[in-house]
Lab assay of single mutants.
Amino acid sequence: MSGNGNAAATAEENSPKMRVIRVGTRKSQLARIQTDSVVATLKASYPGLQFEIIAMSTTGDKILDTALSKIGEKSLFTKELEHALEKNEVDLVVHSLKDLPTVLPPGFTIGAICKRENPHDAVVFHPKFVGKTLETLPEKSVVGTSSLRRAAQLQRKFPHLEFRSIRGNLNTRLRKLDEQQEFSAIILATAGLQRMGWHNRVGQILHPEECMYAVGQGALGVEVRAKDQDILDLVGVLHDPETLLRCIAERAFLRHLEGGCSVPVAVHTAMKDGQLYLTGGVWSLDGSDSIQETMQATIHVPAQHEDGPEDDPQLVGITARNIPRGPQLAAQNLGISLANLLLSKGAKNILDVARQLNDAH
């Protein structure tokens, strides 16, 4: 009898209710805020589980004197976190989706994509230029951005401005803007500013005609071990179906173009009346040469937790077992079709030249 009692006690200790789920994140304040929001949602869904947040620095956090596009290494903000995932030191990792490459290392998958916040870019102005827009900034004003995508589009749109690289986390960039006289304004992701509670610093939100956004911008991705079915089931509740389908289309477009950090590629997606609209573009580094096109596809946005595919093969690095396969494939095909259209119009040449120029500098 006593033996059975011990077995029952052991089973209770090993039951999922007692389990601590370890969540990996970057150390920056924004990353911690984003991770806290994901953990809060998981806690609400699984009140019996405990969650421990483990923060670590990544290569991208450490190399702050070089433009991201020049470092010449993929997975700048993800490699150390993936290493911890691989060694079973954490069970899942919360990322900004735009930091996750469209091809993940073997053994990993994006197990959830959370509801997207505003994906557009924002302009934050130096205190002396508050009330201005990019259009009304004085001639030769210097605007800071760490992104080739932003610089290429904005140089084309605002030729009277000069664009220079600015690195560091959000706090560091804002301090550089406010305390030094080098920059009249800087460009940042609206979602990051909003998550930090800095709505009052948003001086201008850039519309798609001015600057399309990065693939996955404004959404959070939760990376897990691809074979860890328990954790895949656990994080599945975080999937937002519309965000998922938009981001599958965007990531398929980028992957098929073979774009990345070192080339200016941008997108804009919208879901309306059962249609998914995808606009994508590529630019030369100075913005003088560009190709942009829009395509659409009829896609039914499923309700969360309709029964999805059981075999769960990944699409552009994403596993969404609780979302039907048909809409996911339709979104992926839309991204591939748009990429093929741009490639047929000469996108590869623009991107190759951009890559060579970026590598040469």
Rank of each mutant, 00 (worst) to 15 (best):
R22D: 05
V23M: 12
G24T: 03
G24N: 00
T25C: 06
R26Q: 00
R26C: 00
R26D: 00
K27R: 15
Q29Y: 08
Q29T: 09
L30K: 01
L30A: 02
A31K: 00
R32N: 13
R32W: 09
R32D: 05
Q34I: 06
Q34T: 05
T35A: 11
D36Q: 15
D36G: 13
S37T: 14
S37N: 14
S37R: 11
S37K: 13
V38R: 04
V38K: 01
V39C: 10
V39F: 07
T41N: 09
K43Q: 11
K43W: 09
K43F: 05
P47W: 05
G48M: 06
G48R: 10
L49G: 11
L49T: 14
Q50M: 14
I53D: 09
I54Y: 12
M56I: 14
M56C: 04
S57D: 14
T58Q: 04
T59L: 06
G60S: 01
D61N: 01
D61K: 05
D61V: 01
D61E: 14
I63H: 06
T66R: 09
T66S: 14
A67T: 13
L68R: 13
K70S: 07
K70E: 09
K70M: 14
K70G: 11
I71W: 07
E73D: 15
E73A: 09
E73V: 10
S75M: 06
S75I: 10
L76T: 10
L76M: 12
T78K: 13
E80P: 07
E82G: 04
A84V: 07
L85Q: 06
L85C: 11
K87I: 13
K87C: 11
E89P: 02
E89Q: 14
V90H: 05
V90E: 06
V90D: 02
V90L: 12
D91E: 14
D91S: 08
D91P: 04
D91I: 04
L92I: 12
L92R: 03
L92N: 12
V93D: 07
V93L: 09
V93W: 01
V93P: 03
V94Y: 03
H95D: 04
S96I: 01
S96Y: 03
D99H: 07
T102K: 02
T102G: 08
T102S: 13
V103R: 11
L104N: 03
P106I: 10
P106H: 13
P106N: 13
T109Q: 07
I110R: 01
I110Q: 00
I113A: 08
C114D: 11
R116G: 06
R116V: 03
R116H: 04
E117L: 10
E117A: 07
N118L: 06
P119W: 11
P119I: 02
H120Y: 13
A122L: 05
A122M: 07
V123A: 11
V123P: 05
V123R: 01
V124Q: 04
V124H: 00
F125V: 10
F125C: 02
F125G: 02
H126C: 13
V130Y: 14
G131V: 12
K132C: 11
K132S: 12
K132E: 12
L134W: 06
L134N: 01
L134Y: 01
E135A: 14
E135G: 09
T136M: 13
P138Y: 07
P138S: 11
E139M: 08
S141E: 08
V143Q: 04
T145M: 07
S146Q: 14
S146E: 03
S147R: 05
S147T: 06
R149L: 03
R150E: 02
R150Y: 01
A151E: 04
A151W: 11
A151P: 05
A152Y: 09
Q153C: 07
Q153F: 00
Q153V: 06
L154Q: 09
L154S: 06
L154G: 10
Q155G: 10
Q155C: 13
R156H: 13
R156Y: 06
K157C: 11
K157P: 08
K157F: 10
F158H: 14
P159K: 10
P159V: 14
H160P: 10
H160V: 05
L161V: 07
E162M: 10
F163C: 11
R164Q: 09
R164V: 11
S165T: 14
I166E: 01
R167M: 07
L170I: 10
L170N: 09
L170G: 12
N171G: 11
T172G: 10
T172L: 11
R173V: 02
R173K: 04
R175W: 11
K176F: 13
L177N: 07
E179N: 12
E179D: 09
E179H: 10
E179A: 14
Q180F: 03
F183V: 15
A185D: 06
I186F: 07
A189T: 05
A189I: 02
A189W: 00
G192F: 00
G192Q: 00
R195V: 05
R195K: 03
M196Q: 15
M196V: 11
G197W: 04
W198P: 06
H199L: 09
N200M: 10
N200D: 14
R201W: 09
G203T: 03
Q204A: 05
Q204W: 02
Q204P: 10
L206V: 07
L206F: 12
P208Q: 10
E209C: 14
E210L: 14
A214G: 08
V215M: 10
G216Q: 00
Q217N: 00
G218Q: 02
G218A: 05
A219P: 01
G221N: 00
G221H: 05
R225S: 08
R225L: 09
A226I: 07
A226M: 15
K227N: 05
D228A: 12
Q229V: 06
I231T: 07
L234Q: 08
L234H: 07
G236A: 14
G236D: 15
L238C: 04
H239E: 05
H239Y: 05
P241S: 14
P241Q: 15
T243Y: 00
T243L: 00
L245F: 05
C247M: 04
I248Y: 01
E250M: 00
E250Q: 09
R251V: 08
A252F: 01
F253G: 04
F253L: 09
F253N: 02
L254A: 02
H256W: 15
H256V: 10
G259L: 12
S262W: 00
V263E: 12
V263G: 00
V265P: 05
V265D: 02
H268I: 04
H268A: 13
T269S: 04
M271E: 15
K272R: 09
Q275Y: 01
Q275R: 14
L276D: 03
Y277S: 10
L278V: 06
G280L: 03
G280Q: 03
G281L: 08
G281D: 00
D286F: 06
D286Y: 09
G287Q: 00
G287W: 02
G287Y: 05
S288W: 14
S290K: 07
S290Q: 00
Q292M: 13
Q292V: 07
T294I: 13
Q296V: 12
I299K: 05
H300K: 14
H300L: 12
V301G: 13
P302W: 11
P302L: 11
A303D: 15
A303P: 05
Q304D: 02
Q304C: 13
H305M: 07
D307E: 07
D307R: 04
P309A: 14
P309I: 06
E310A: 14
D311L: 09
P313A: 14
G317S: 04
G317H: 03
G317V: 06
R321D: 04
R321K: 15
R321Q: 06
N322L: 06
N322G: 00
I323K: 03
P324Y: 07
Q328K: 13
Q328H: 11
A330T: 01
A331C: 13
S337Q: 01
L338G: 03
N340M: 15
L341F: 06
K345I: 13
K345Y: 14
D352N: 06
D352W: 09
A354V: 05
Q356H: 14
N358D: 00
N358A: 15
